[in-house]
């Protein structure tokens, strides 16, 4: 569903992703863990063009959506295709990034109405369903500032789902939350995973990775060092750096 081939990413001189090969199959929940600065968020952000790769190819749903060499496009992607691709990928950010001038339900309605030109009544109906799914029907008409961090992140998940993506990307979705609010967000994510959604989750939540992931990936200094199903990953890690990382985390 997602395929990343020989991807390099430089920020100026800094080599953030080093010849990364990576894939996510339909229905998989892939958790990416690793120390900060290891490139895991960058990898995620490259998938939907929030960052552009320096070298390599990215396929989404079998379609080549990015192919660059030395910072130059090797193929021209029309705007429609990028939009269509972004429609396949939903993204949840560490700091929620809800639109503060819109109420919760309006946050969910904006993109479907603007991008897909869906009429207001239909968009609202759909939005209310999604808010119900994340357990926030009663907060539909509140502005984000009146919601707790956990509630904001649940709205943000619902907002991404409103575009009916085939894959959900999570960029450290619980890192900005107070500890007691982490659980409610993870519960929604788990529900989503159980419904069969394809997910890629950059996280520090080892418990979530162990319980929900179908595969766990360890990244350090721009390189994927180990990937395995959670039992094997946590029970019998092979890479030395992963072993010391896990020791520090638990």
């Amino acid at each position: 569903m997602i395929k990343v081939e020989n991807v390099d990413k430089y920020f100026g001189k800094l080599h953030v992703l080093k010849n990364v090969d990576f894939h996510v199959d339909p229905g998989e929940v892939v958790c990416v863990i690793g120390p900060s600065g290891s490139g895991k968020s960058t990898l995620l952000r490259c998938l939907n063009h929030l960052e552009r790769i320096t070298n390599g190819k990215i396929y989404i749903g079998g379609e080549l959506v990015d192919y660059r060499e030395n910072d130059r496009d090797k193929m021209v992607i029309e705007h429609e295709k990028v939009v269509a691709m972004c429609g396949e990928l939903g993204m949840v950010f560490q700091r929620f990034n809800l639109f503060p001038h819109k109420t919760a339900v309006e946050n969910l309605m904006l993109a479907p109405m603007t991008v897909k030109k869906i009429d207001k009544a239909t968009a609202r109906e759909k939005a209310m369903d999604l808010l119900k799914m994340v357990g926030l029907s009663d907060k539909a008409d509140e502005y984000p500032v009146r919601l707790s961090g956990g509630q904001q992140q649940r709205v943000a998940i619902a907002r991404a789902l409103a575009m009916e993506p085939k894959i959900m990307l999570f960029d450290e979705p619980t890192s900005a939350l107070d500890p007691e609010l982490v659980g409610e967000v993870l519960a929604v994510m788990k529900k989503l995973a159980l419904s069969g959604m394809t997910m890629m989750v950059v996280t520090h939540e080892m418990g979530f990775a162990r319980e929900v992931a179908s595969r766990v990936v360890f990244m350090d200094e721009g390189v994927i060092l180990e990937e395995a199903p959670p039992n094997e990953f946590f029970g019998n890690p092979k890479n030395e750096r992963l072993k010391s990382f896990l020791k520090k985390m638990i």
Partner: peptide, 10 residues
């Protein structure tokens, strides 16, 4: 993050 969120939504 506002521009990024908008772009990520297509």
């Amino acid at each position: 993050g506002q521009m990024e969120a908008a772009k990520a939504l297509g």
